[in-house]
């Protein structure tokens, strides 16, 4: 494992921890999109179908369990916790799941490396992860006033994506036959979705101001 991959996984982990910290300690999920969180739970559930059958490393198994556990617990908190769920911006978070899930499923059935159930589900999870942040970005755009933790959560997710691209470049030059078009293209699309957010995040950081998104 190279340094970019490790740093990418760590920022991904940090993003989830920041979100759990916000929800668990402040008992608020204001500004967090439940739609995006539900999509991530679906992403991990479909991607890690091989968790008990394909052993890669202890690191991989533990991280998979953490991502599965954290994504489902965030969804549980936002839906059912008696205090947290009251802070959820339900009226603003109106993005429709099937609008993203259906095209990704069709695409996974058409474009995959191997037409088996597990491979199609794995491919579907990659396509869905690429666009799962959209409800969150729409919600940020609508609420505009973003608290620090929500801003940091999205920033860390974007950093994770950027580091994964560096990881692929590194692997391409150091590992023979490391060519994975599906992973790369969906990963690139996902990273590009953060570009706009990153621009405003950088501006607010540079000017030492609270993050505001334009209407």
């Amino acid at each position: 494992m190279n340094i970019f991959r490790l740093a990418g996984d760590m920022t991904h982990l940090a993003s989830v921890l920041v979100l759990l910290l916000k929800i668990h300690t402040i008992k608020s999920c204001a500004g967090v999109s439940l739609k995006t969180q539900e999509l991530y739970a679906l992403v991990f559930a479909c991607r890690y179908l091989d968790i008990f059958t394909n052993f890669v490393s202890l690191y991989n198994t533990v991280m998979k369990l953490i991502f599965l556990g954290s994504s489902f617990s965030i969804v549980w908190y936002m839906r059912y916790h008696k205090v947290v769920r009251r802070s959820y911006d339900k009226d603003q978070d109106t993005f429709r799941h099937y609008f993203l899930v259906l095209p990704c499923l069709v695409l996974a059935l058409l474009i995959n490396e191997k037409f088996t159930f597990k491979e199609v589900m794995w491919t579907f999870s990659l396509y869905l992860e690429a666009v799962a942040i959209l409800p969150q970005l729409v919600l940020l755009q609508r609420t505009r006033n973003i608290d620090n933790l929500t801003g940091q959560y999205v920033f860390l997710l974007g950093a994770y994506r950027g580091l994964y691209i560096l990881n692929w470049i590194y692997r391409y030059f150091t590992e023979p036959h490391f060519v994975h078009w599906i992973t790369w293209i969906s990963g690139l699309v996902q990273t590009l979705l953060y570009a706009d957010f990153f621009y405003y995040y950088y501006q607010s950081w540079k000017n030492n101001q609270k993050l505001h998104l334009p209407a």
Binding site: D9, H12, D50, N54, V56, S57, N60, M63, E119, H180
Partner: peptide
Amino acid sequence: SNDRVVHDEL
């Protein structure tokens, strides 16, 4: 490689 079935990334 094309016969990769083990996905080693998260």
